[in-house]
Amino acid sequence: MSQPTAAAKSPSSRTGERQGRLSADDWAQAALDLIAEQGVAAVAVESLARRLGVTKGSFYWHFPSRDALLQAALERWENVEQEAVFGALEAISDPRERLRALIQMVAHEIKLHVIYSALLQALDHPIVQPVIGRVSERRLAYLTASYREVGFAEGEARHRARLAYTAYVGFLQLSIQLPQSRLDHEQFDAYIEHVMATLIPPARP
Rank of each mutant, 00 (worst) to 15 (best):
D94F: 00
E154H: 11
R160A: 02
V135N: 12
L120F: 10
Q129Y: 10
A88Q: 08
S175L: 10
S146M: 07
A164Q: 05
A153M: 13
Y142G: 04
P95W: 02
F171M: 14
V131W: 06
A161C: 04
Y116N: 15
R158L: 12
I132M: 14
A118T: 09
V169Q: 10
G151P: 01
P95Q: 00
I115F: 10
Y147G: 01
P130V: 03
A101V: 04
S136H: 15
A107F: 05
H113A: 09
S117K: 10
R148T: 09
E90F: 02
S146E: 07
S117C: 11
P130R: 01
V106L: 13
D124E: 12
V150W: 00
E137T: 13
Y147I: 03
G151I: 02
L120R: 08
H159W: 14
E137C: 09
A164Y: 00
S117R: 12
E90I: 02
R96T: 02
L143M: 05
H108R: 15
T144I: 07
S93G: 02
L99I: 05
I127L: 14
S117Q: 13
K111P: 13
I115R: 09
L119R: 05
Q177P: 07
P130N: 03
I92A: 00
Q121P: 06
I92P: 00
H108P: 09
Q104A: 12
L123A: 08
L123C: 08
G133I: 05
E154Q: 13
Y165P: 05
A88N: 06
P126N: 02
E109N: 13
G170P: 01
A141C: 10
L178D: 11
T166Q: 12
D124K: 08
L140Y: 03
E137S: 12
D124T: 11
A91W: 01
R138F: 07
Y116V: 10
Y168S: 11
S146W: 03
R160D: 04
Y142K: 06
E156M: 12
I110C: 14
E137Q: 14
P130E: 05
E109R: 12
Y142V: 04
L102F: 04
A91K: 02
V131T: 10
H108A: 14
K111N: 14
A107P: 01
Q121N: 13
Y165D: 11
E90Q: 07
L123K: 08
L140A: 08
R139Q: 15
R134L: 04
A153D: 15
I103K: 06
G151L: 02
E137G: 11
R148E: 11
P95D: 03
T144R: 08
R138A: 12
I176C: 11
E90C: 00
V135P: 06
R98Y: 00
P95V: 00
L143I: 01
V135R: 14
I127S: 07
A107I: 07
S175D: 10
A101D: 02
A164N: 03
V135D: 11
